[in-house]
Write a protein that binds this DNA or RNA. Structure first.
Lengths: 279, 279
DNA sequence: GTGTGTGAAGCCTTTCACAGCC
DNA sequence: GGCTGTGAAAGGCTTCACACAC
């Protein structure tokens, strides 16, 4: 590795840390809310509170984008909205396909936040012939056979996989072969993709398990041995007093996926292909 | 801060890094798959590939749990499954309530991975009287009025919020007041919670925006100025050759939430209360 | 020989604290 | 006086590389 990033003239550097990128959408949402309330400017302290981070972090984050604030005053809301949108690439239109129109796929298709952020559902795709033609969220579901054509015709570069785990790798391969270079994966599988393809993973089961871990710890503390409980628990507390222990959408290590793609044809535990993203 | 963690006799230390905790479910899933194929032992290299991480990280992670491997051989699959399950608190039963039975709530209710990991859907709750009594995933939906009673009667400590953003904070407050201490939030809002309550956030819109950011960068590189593109892109590549740039469920800073709970009554952009988790 | 367990090094992220500009 | 922008310090996570156990 020995990546670049080392020194770089601060001139609007291309080198925004992943952790910062992951928080930009948070700021953007808070700013959008302010914008709708016609708030003209906001301080780092206020915005940070609205976004659920601390102000030092926010200022540092913004410093990677440039100097968009005014000392002694704060940030211009509209201007920041624009700058962050541009940085995130939301000023352009991103056609998206959703593959796997089960309960989850339907939920995603109905998700209002799509359109408002530059994303457009270009197509819904499902392998079940019975689904073909059925309208979901006002869009007729298309059969998997059409996948390649849909991707090409619409110039889709972002795909969402909401299929059962057993189908995910195969769908992924087809998406990638057809030209998709970013994938949001809801199936509980490790996808292996070629170089240059981004995959992000959302996994309900994992989130719950992490919660259970902390929950268990709490229970253990109040009951049996208080021991030296400080570690995880105590580290909480941030800017605001009345709030703690919240893990916001965390940062993204941006690391490589596994291979071992072989046994991906296998299904997880549970019955065969439960309604939505089996474990 | 100056947290503990400093030195600690390696005796099954209480101080597993958050990043490690976030990966345990990944290992557990891979191990479960191996277990079903009756694979008796596995090396760090193999398991790491199956889980989509590199082997050094995996070994380091396991070292926080204890020395469960055998040098020159590997790890006993069944034993590891048990140890990780125990560590995550999955050997006990966790009753869970899901609040907000729209498209997403229904998807979650139908999610097969619940039961198989020690989680049990104790109740489905929705504010719409028309939903009350309707069976979803074999469970009759109950009205929000019953929320407190349900929590208490079932000893629920984990709640899932799948309501529109406008309702999330209020639901959260009621859950917490009734005794819930861990919340998985699908609504695109910053929840403010009292000390000692864990919140994890899953947000589709944010994930897509992060993808768009990288996607935009790719486009910029191949088209206009190749500049000094290496930064983000190059940092990819891990263990396996044929795979890169995957951001697996990232680590969790485990930080405090915002206040500013005031304007949470406000709705996001988009129409009013779209089907599922509006932006 | 093989593969784990782990100190040490390196990198990234967060936090601090204050100079500088309005 | 207030608030941003940012070096510097601190902390945490990942990677390296090798001793050690089987």
């Amino acid at each position: 590795m020995a990546t670049g990033r080392t020194h770089r003239p601060a001139t609007r550097s291309r080198g925004i840390p992943e952790a910062t990128v992951a928080r930009l959408p948070l700021y953007l949402r808070a700013l959008t809310a302010l914008s709708e309330r016609s708030v003209p400017t906001v301080s780092s302290e206020e915005l940070a509170a609205a976004a659920g981070v601390n102000s030092a972090k926010l200022r540092k984050d913004f410093s990677y984008l440039g100097s968009y604030g005014t000392r002694g005053v704060g940030y211009d809301v509209e201007y920041l909205v624009y700058q962050i949108s541009r940085e995130l690439g939301l000023t352009q239109d991103w056609p998206v396909v959703i593959v796997g129109i089960g309960n989850l796929g339907a939920a995603l298709a109905n998700y209002g936040g799509f359109a408002s952020r530059g994303f457009r559902v270009a197509a819904l795709i499902d392998a079940d012939p019975a689904m073909t033609g059925k309208p979901v969220a006002g869009i007729a579901v298309q059969h998997t056979d059409e996948l390649e054509k849909i991707i090409t015709d619409n110039g889709v570069s972002i795909g969402v996989i909401a299929t059962p785990a057993g189908a995910a790798q195969q769908v992924c391969d087809r998406l990638v072969a057809a030209g998709v270079t970013s994938i949001l994966n809801f199936a509980p599988t490790v996808l292996s993709v070629p170089d240059g393809v981004d995959v992000r993973k959302v996994d309900l089961s994992i989130e719950l398990q992490i919660l259970a871990f902390h929950e268990q710890r709490k229970a253990g503390e109040e009951t049996g041995a208080p021991e030296e409980g400080e570690s995880a628990q105590a580290a909480a507390q941030d800017t605001v007093p009345g709030a703690a222990a919240v893990a916001q959408t965390p940062l993204a290590p941006h690391r490589a996926a596994s291979g071992a793609g072989k046994d991906n044809g296998r299904q997880g535990p549970d019955g065969d292909v439960p309604a939505v993203m089996p474990a």
